[in-house]
Every structure is written in C-alpha cells, then in structure tokens.
C-alpha cells in the first residue's frame, strides 16, 4: 500500500520583495524552499511508513529545479519521488493543479493501492488551501482537512480516525479509506536527514513525468485549464493606524514607543 505525500517548492517568502510599481513578487535570486506546511505532511507519511510499512511516494508539480526538493524528501526516507514538470502545466490555478496531481496519483495507484494522500494545509505563496481538497474531489477520496492528529488507522477495516484542529475546538472524524488528509504544522516535528541518507538520495532517481505520461487533454491543464486568472497583485493600502519607530533595527526603542503609545491611549496601565 502506498501513501502519497504532495509537496510544493515555494520561494522563500522571508526573502521575497514586491515590486513597488507592479505589485508583483520579485522572484529573481530568491532561493526556493519546501513549503513549510508540506514538511509535516511528508513527516506524517514517513511515520505511517514506520508504523505500517507503507511505501511513501512523494510528488510535486513544478519547474525542473524542484528535483532538489524531491531529493531532500528521498533523503528523509521517501521511497519514490515523482516530478510533474511540463511547460504545458505552467500558469495553472488550483483547479488545473489538482487535476494534474490527481491524475498522477491515479497513475501511481496502478502500481499499488493508494490508501492515504497527505498534503500541507496550504502553500505559503498561493495561500489558497484548495489544492488538497481539489485532489480529493477529483479522486473521490474523503477529504480531511486541518488534521493535527492521526489517531487510528485500521488497515483491516479500512478506516481512519483523525482529529481536526478548528478554531477554538477539535473535531474527531472517522472515515473509510482511501482518504486525503491536509495537515497543520502542529501535527508533528519533521525529521532531519542523516548523512548516509543524503548521500544515497543525491544519486537516487526522481521520476520525471510530463503531460505525455499522464495524458490529460490540453484544455484541462495549465493556464487553459484554469478557472481563475490573476489580474493584479497589490498590497492593500493602509487607511488607518500608525507605524511606530523602526522595529526591525531598533527593537528596544520601538518597544518603548509602543508602550508609551499604549499607555497614552489608556489601553494598558502600569
């Protein structure tokens, strides 16, 4: 049985700046990292492997340099990595992306039964949280979002019980397999690769799939298959409030300014 972990390579948002004129992200020279929400998804897949002996397949849709990110996943213990890379996939929104990923997972399922698909709750660049549930819908898997605990996985009865982390409360849900789970970061502490695993994975092969491998019609993928289009990105203008000091370079001084301002407005008292 297979657990699929979907991961995404994203620009390191701590190093991204927006173009003041166009309002778009300046991506040049910005290093890529694994989407921080996806690392726990991969970790959870690896934990299922440790406990139940699943085969872990990690997949990602992205440009060819995503291979580095996938190799890192192999270093952590994933058994197989699939990179979905094709110019035709470019410009995809969450709908087109989920179609490609769902099709790839169906193809993986030809090798062995896929019991669980794991995704991060959302990506830090797109921030939509739609791709996971989108894949579930396309595959007909039960979506379980915002999971912070997989409580029980019963392979004989083919069911899983998880805890979802909702605002101010938890929800315990049980559902039959197969299922797609999106995880929150609190679910686990991702592992760190050992050196032998890093060295092995540096030579390991990442399977490269393009659209000819999964064979989706051109109108369903990429920009053409996208139901939404980005017209403009901009930072909303601040209409009220006040920026005090220079928090980044003078934190002590700025904290004092803030305390004074709050005291003045009677928000706090000493």
């Amino acid at each position: 049985m297979i657990v699929v972990a979907c991961i995404k390579q994203v620009p390191d948002t701590t190093q991204v700046k927006t173009d003041p004129v166009t309002g778009t992200l300046i991506r040049e020279g910005v290093p890529f990292i694994v989407n921080p929400f996806d690392s726990p998804a991969l970790e959870e897949a690896l934990k299922l492997k440790d406990e139940y002996g699943f085969r872990v397949v990690v997949i990602s849709m992205g440009p060819p340099n995503t291979e580095v990110t996938l190799k890192k996943a192999l270093a952590l213990g994933a058994d197989d990595a699939v990179l979905l890379s094709d110019r035709a996939f470019g410009g995809a929104d969450t709908l087109a992306t989920s179609k490609v990923l769902a099709e790839a997972i169906s193809k993986i399922a030809e090798e062995d039964e896929v019991a669980v698909v794991l995704c991060g709750r959302q990506s830090i660049d797109g921030d939509t949280a739609q791709v996971g549930p989108g894949i579930a819908t396309r595959l007909g898997f039960t979506p379980l979002t915002l999971v912070d605990q997989i409580q029980e996985l019963d392979l004989a009865a083919k069911k899983v019980r998880v805890r979802r982390k909702l605002e101010g409360r938890h929800e315990i849900v049980e559902t039959p397999l197969p299922t797609l789970i999106t995880v929150v970061r609190e679910i686990n502490q991702p592992r760190y690769p050992t050196v032998p695993m890093r060295l092995i994975s540096s030579d390991a092969e990442v399977r490269l799939w393009d659209n000819s491998t999964i064979g989706l019609p051109a109108e369903l993928i990429g920009l053409a298959g996208s139901a939404t289009q980005v017209r403009k990105i901009f930072s909303p203008e601040r209409t009220e409030g006040e920026i005090l000091g220079d928090g980044e370079n003078k934190p002590d001084e700025t904290a004092r300014l803030l305390i004074d301002a709050l005291l003045e407005k009677d928000v706090i008292s000493i």
């Binding site: 701590t14 190093q15 502490q189 050992t194």
Partner: peptide
C-alpha cells in the same frame, strides 16, 4: 547517523543550511 538531537536544534540546522 541518527538525526537525533534536542528538538530545538531542528530549526537552527535548517536555518543554517538554508539561509
């Protein structure tokens, strides 16, 4: 060999490697 260390070092290691 074991990737075993106090958990607070994970972030530190990632930061050093990445940034």
């Amino acid at each position: 060999m074991k990737a075993k260390f106090p958990h607070e070092l994970l972030n530190f290691f990632e930061n050093m490697e990445g940034r």
